[in-house]
Design a protein around this nucleic acid. Structure first.
Lengths: 236, 236
DNA sequence: GCGTTTTTTTACCATATGGTAAAACAACGA
DNA sequence: TCGTTGTTTTACCATATGGTAAAAAAACGC
């Protein structure tokens, strides 16, 4: 799977059990009475919902929830505002849909940490993937950052449901590695925070990074630095 | 100077050559013709501008620029909206004033790195101070994060003027330390980014951190982790 | 082709919001 | 105390914005 589309990958590719699939499902739910089976969304529904979410990702990630307007989203999607409200029940619905769809994808790299793999190697691979995501999907990163910055009013519930179990599990794995002496001892949760913050920094604070860095080499430099950082921290 | 008041320290404490002092000065500038000398702002002006900026810091840091409303600021400041516009020329003026006042303070810890001190010690002290600032001044951190996330539309100019020279200088210092073998070799600029991101993370992503951490020990744990992180990275 | 359903457009609305004018009021110096 | 200056309130306004109703236009099933 190429890394040039995250949020909308599966749908674009045509698979049917994925983020946008769920998204469309949830739409059906909100427009039909609960008794009839979900009629499969038409080609045109798929296309337009996709367009809207794409446009909304642009706008929300750039201006934040309140800073974004339906008109901007509509314009960017090439649809009229009422038309957008035909597909989504409101501004918040779009935002939540985006956030929900993003969650799984965002956590995927952590899920891919292999308990059977070489500890240091697994962590370094995770760091690299997270950094890659910052480069490839800065909009998603900023959407997320905006939401959490404002106190996670809309995604907060997911923290307990999806994020926490995964983090707990991963932290346990890392700490078991530490105890076995296969990693230098660290607080696994703070380690995870540091990985998130250092990698996402390059997307979320891009304006600052660009202003301070000689340019172009940004990502290569970051990659190398983070590699060194976590090698020195974690080598047993 | 204690670290329990950042942006408004001096004024609250009554000293007169500090951020808010400058803030008030800039106000005078915008309300009088340029030919007469600045009449010193009255007690009441100081007090009300202070209140407004305090309230605005609350509101802007919580909701972002566009998410914040003058009415919220007014309410929080205990003044009427038109009254607020008597002291500031508009919403943007308040925001810019806040950001400008914050800049110096935000950079202070970096300025305090002592070229004569012990390298590792100086960096660790810097990390600790930054982390402390995240704990003590989360609003300021979020205000900043919000601004940079949106592309630094209002603070961008400062990057070239204030931030870049200081970062360049500090990076040079760190790299000279590296070359002298007093620090393990690192890319100084990425090191700085990592310090910023890991420390500010605890303020900016507090909603997430709180959801994932067993609680209370948050800061002690962070402190210890970051200490370890940078010791292992930088010990020669 | 034709009736039915889905999609899109046109024309609105209510509210929120940044901002202003000018009157009322308070403080202050003479 | 009076006039002047500085401060606050009252009453507004223009625009932006999220959202709706209902007609018009496509699409679709047969």
């Amino acid at each position: 799977m190429q890394a040039d589309h995250l949020l909308f990958t599966g749908v674009i590719r045509g698979s049917d059990d994925n983020k946008l699939g769920n998204v469309v499902e949830s739409w059906s739910m909100s427009h039909h009475s609960a008794d009839d089976a979900d009629p499969k969304p038409s080609r045109i529904q798929m296309r337009n919902r996709k367009r809207i979410l794409e446009a909304a990702l642009d706008v929300f990630s750039q201006h934040g929830y309140r800073g974004a307007t339906l008109d901007q989203i509509a314009e960017s999607a090439g649809l009229s505002k009422p038309n957008i409200l035909y597909y989504f029940s409101g501004k918040e619905d779009i935002h939540v849909t985006l956030l929900n769809g993003l969650m799984d994808t965002w956590l995927a790299p952590m899920r891919e940490i292999d308990p059977e793999g070489d500890p240091l190697n697994e962590i370094l691979r995770y760091v690299r993937r997270k950094l890659e995501m910052s480069r490839e999907f800065p909009r998603e990163s900023r959407l997320f950052a905006n939401e959490v910055l404002q106190g996670a009013p809309r995604i907060g519930p997911h923290f307990g449901a999806d994020l926490k179990p995964l983090v707990d599990e991963t932290a346990q794995l890392i700490e078991s590695w530490s105890k076995q002496g296969r990693l230098a001892p660290v607080d696994a949760r703070h380690l995870i925070f540091s990985i998130w913050s250092t990698t996402q920094h390059y997307a979320d604070f891009d304006a600052q990074v660009q202003a301070l860095l000689p340019d172009d080499d940004t990502h290569a430099g970051a990659q190398e630095f983070l590699d060194t950082l976590y090698k020195r921290l974690l080598s047993p």
